[in-house]
Amino acid sequence: MGGIEPGKGSLDLLEAHALLRAARSDVRLVIAGGETLFDYRDYRASWESRAAEPAVEPVVLGPVGEDELPSLVAAADVFAFPSLKEGFGLAAMEALAAGVPLVVRDLPVLREVFGSAARFAATPEDLATELGDALATEDPDRRSAGRALAALHTWDAAARSHLDFYRSLNSPS
Rank of each mutant, 00 (worst) to 15 (best):
V60P: 09
E94R: 12
V78R: 02
S46L: 15
E57F: 00
P82V: 11
G65K: 11
S83M: 10
A91D: 05
V56L: 05
S71I: 06
L72A: 08
R50Y: 02
S83Q: 05
G87I: 11
F81N: 04
L61W: 08
G65V: 06
S46W: 06
E48T: 07
V78M: 03
V73D: 02
A74H: 00
A55Y: 00
P58G: 15
G87V: 13
E48R: 07
R50G: 02
A76I: 10
D42Y: 07
A52S: 15
E66C: 03
G62C: 12
V60H: 05
P82H: 10
G62L: 11
F79D: 04
W47A: 01
F81V: 06
E53V: 13
E68F: 01
V64E: 07
V73K: 01
P63W: 14
A55W: 02
E86H: 04
S71E: 15
V78N: 06
A91K: 01
S49C: 04
L90P: 00
P63K: 08
M93G: 00
E86F: 11
D42F: 09
M93Y: 01
V56I: 14
L84A: 10
V59N: 01
S83E: 04
W47C: 02
A91S: 15
A95D: 03
A92M: 07
D77W: 00
R44E: 14
G62Y: 01
G65E: 13
M93Q: 01
L84V: 12
E94S: 00
V60W: 06
V59H: 10
F81H: 13
E53M: 13
D67P: 00
P70N: 08
A51G: 10
L69F: 04
R50E: 13
D42W: 07
A45Y: 01
D42S: 14
